[in-house]
């Protein structure tokens, strides 16, 4: 049995028909993708316009300029911000994924003495999905102060982990439930312990889901704003999402600067995602074909 394979479409059909079908689906895919990407292209165009042209005449070609990027690069400590964001993202996402995986494994695979304990614990985690994050700001600020971690990376990392747990648990328990247990049972018969089962048996097969979780969590950390704006008051620790907000003032907004900063933040993320997901899916497909 294989975990997955890219479907090849209906096989025994005659060649021309199949090719026509493929061309049609290909065109449809490109068209849909184009429509989805269109607004992003629009922003890229806007980011090349001076702020006042954005408001009055965004189609104007002769005013195109890289000034916004020059300003953004000059006024933002880009390296520092990416460093901060990466530190916070790596720490919170890896720890978050590990603790969520451990909990999800226990919640789907391990045998509880009271069966209701399992479902109520799962619900305990999942209920977090319904909480708007603004509720957490005041109390977490106070906890960070009480723990003496206010003004450090940890002030952001710990709440980010907590916030990622409900989502991670939902995804991991969902996939673990759908996933056959035979593999682990075979490993137990081979005499594997809990750690080896998780590490060498379950985690490898969960790769696409883990990848999904990592990607979503990293994206969350890159874009998160309410917590950073409250918990980080030291500009040296600012993350990229704080950077974009710097273009907004009480009576002024530098739209061009915001668009440029947004593009500067967005592009590396897209590239990283493109590389990362291809890698994950390639590894997965190879494993499936060989398996």
């Amino acid at each position: 049995m294989t975990i997955s394979t890219p479907p090849a479409g209906p096989r025994p059909v005659t060649r021309p028909r199949r090719r026509r079908g493929l061309i049609f689906t290909g065109l449809a895919a490109y068209l849909v993708t184009f429509l989805i990407v269109l607004p992003i292209l629009w922003v890229t165009v806007l980011s090349l316009q001076p702020s006042d042209t954005i408001l009055s005449d965004p189609f104007s070609i002769k005013t195109l300029t890289f000034d916004n990027y020059r300003n953004a690069v000059a006024s933002l400590p880009l390296l520092q911000m990416y460093k901060n964001t990466l530190i916070v993202a790596l720490a919170s996402v890896t720890i978050g994924a590990i603790v969520s995986f451990m909990a999800s494994y226990a919640l789907t695979r391990m045998v509880f003495r009271h069966p209701t304990a399992r479902s109520s614990l799962r619900f305990y985690f999942l209920a977090g999905l319904a909480v708007p994050v603004y509720v957490l700001l005041f109390p977490i600020y106070r906890i960070d102060l009480a723990l003496g971690i206010f003004g450090t990376y940890a002030a952001l990392i710990l709440p980010y982990i907590a916030v990622s747990i409900p989502f991670n648990t939902l995804l991991l328990t969902g996939f673990l439930r759908e996933f056959p247990k035979e593999l682990e049972e075979a490993a137990i018969i081979d005499g594997a312990g809990l750690f080896r089962i998780c590490w060498s048996v379950v985690l490898p097969t969960m790769r696409p889901v883990i990848a999904t979780i990592l990607i979503f969590n990293v994206v969350y950390v890159f874009n998160e704003f309410p917590f950073v704006s409250i918990l980080i008051n030291n500009p040296d620790l600012a993350t990229v999402s704080l950077a974009v907000s710097k273009f907004q003032g009480q009576y002024t907004v530098d739209y061009g600067g915001m668009m440029a900063a947004a593009t500067l933040v967005l592009l590396p993320q897209l590239v990283i995602y493109a590389v990362f997901q291809r890698h994950v899916i390639a590894g997965l497909t190879a494993g499936a074909v060989k398996g």
Partner: peptide
Amino acid sequence: RALVFGPAIIA
């Protein structure tokens, strides 16, 4: 797939 995911990356 990466491009379609694009909007989800934007704050």
